[in-house]
Computed example of a mutant assay.
Amino acid sequence: MRFLPDGKVDGSILAKRVFPYLGSLQDEILVGPNVGIDAAVIDISKLSGMMVVSQDPITGAGKNAGFHVVNVCANDVASMGAKPMFFLSTIIMPKGATDDDLEEISKDIERAAKEIGVSIVGGHTEVSGKVSDLILSGTMIGFSDRYVSTSGAREGDDILLTKGAGIEGTAILAETKSEYLSKYLDLNLIEKAKGLLNKISVVKEALIASSLGANAMHDPTEGGVLGGLHEIADASNKGFEFYEDKVHLYSETKSICNILGINPFGLISSGALLVISPKEKTNSIIESLLKEKIEVSIIGKVTKEKRSHERISQDELWRILDTKL
């Protein structure tokens, strides 16, 4: 182990600590990451007709931030009906970071990438005294013959939710607030809550729902399920009716939210997918998801303009992280 100096990480360190972890390799990559290579070259001539691109930063995720950034970016691409394929990352580490830290981040990114069949094709890595904590930013590129827009909701459509609310937030709080939570909750429950991180990919369900004719999809990240519903309504110029009692909550989410006084519907919810379905296609979408062992329920309907719930001003995760417990 050695401390990394400020500035761009040296190529010899990248060769040992980053480049061995490039996810799922694909034939379309003609030029990939290497020392002295500043851009990737990808042959897209045989890929589906439309490119879908998404970019997201990750802050406040703590441990497993690399796993988070890949999945959050992939979820955005898949929520528009595209298969995520190529990923680029920017890693900015605070002063005092080591080459071991860098390798752990790289391994974490690769773990997520391999799980969903994504190749890591480039990025940038540096140490900066301007930051006090790790900052990751990712760009995901996917391809599809058909895209689904958040703006596609129509009056009368069913609103489906896969898995449950607050999945990512539960995992992050279990990791970052474990000392406080351990005063009130069993350690086994806290460890199970951390394990919810492994449920944050929605790629599989998004591609299924898209192929079966969903009108719109959205992964509810910051702002939780309520934030996601408002974003769909904003994009589609529609309203919604939300059935709180129909939303699945994992026992770990219920317990942590009760202890911390959190509204689970306003807690960052990567891992869940909001699917806006024409009524005539709802049953086939639900049946196909259940066949793949993906939990799903009808949690509301799209209305002409009235919204049953108010918008929240701040994600519950940030409210708790900013509070001294």
Rank of each mutant, 00 (worst) to 15 (best):
R2Y: 14
P5A: 06
D6S: 14
D6M: 12
G7N: 08
K8Y: 12
L14M: 11
A15T: 13
P20D: 07
Y21V: 07
S24V: 13
Q26T: 13
E28W: 03
L30I: 15
V31S: 10
G32R: 05
G32V: 07
D38G: 13
A39K: 15
V41H: 11
S45P: 10
S45W: 11
S48C: 12
G49K: 12
V52N: 02
V52A: 01
V52M: 05
Q55S: 15
P57V: 13
T59F: 12
A61F: 12
G62T: 08
A65S: 15
V69G: 03
C73T: 11
A74D: 01
V77W: 00
A78Q: 01
S79D: 06
F86C: 02
T90I: 11
A97K: 00
T98P: 06
D99G: 09
E104R: 14
I105H: 01
S106N: 07
A113Y: 02
S119M: 08
V127D: 02
K130W: 13
D133L: 10
L134S: 09
L136C: 04
S137F: 11
I141R: 04
D145T: 12
R146K: 13
V148L: 04
S149V: 08
S149Q: 09
A153Y: 01
R154P: 07
E155Q: 14
D157Y: 02
L160K: 01
K163Q: 15
A165C: 07
A165V: 01
I167Q: 05
I167D: 03
E168K: 15
I172C: 04
T176A: 12
S178I: 12
E179Q: 14
S182D: 08
Y184A: 10
L187F: 13
L187E: 14
L187C: 12
L189S: 05
K194M: 06
L196H: 03
L197D: 07
N198P: 09
K199T: 12
I200R: 02
I200W: 02
S201R: 00
V202H: 04
V203F: 04
I208Q: 05
I208H: 04
S211E: 09
A214C: 09
A216K: 02
M217E: 03
H218K: 06
D219K: 08
V225H: 02
L226A: 08
G228V: 00
E231M: 12
E231S: 11
E231I: 09
A233Q: 03
A235V: 04
K238F: 01
D245G: 11
K246M: 13
I259Q: 06
L260A: 05
L260R: 03
G261V: 06
S270A: 13
G271I: 02
A272D: 04
L273R: 02
I276D: 04
I276T: 00
S284F: 13
S284C: 11
S288Y: 10
K291E: 15
K293A: 13
E295P: 11
E295R: 14
E295A: 15
I298N: 13
I299A: 04
I299M: 06
T303N: 07
R307C: 06
S308Q: 08
I312Q: 10
I312L: 15
I312G: 10
D315M: 00
D315I: 02
E316T: 05
E316F: 05
L317C: 05
R319W: 09
I320P: 00
T323D: 11
K324C: 11
K324P: 09
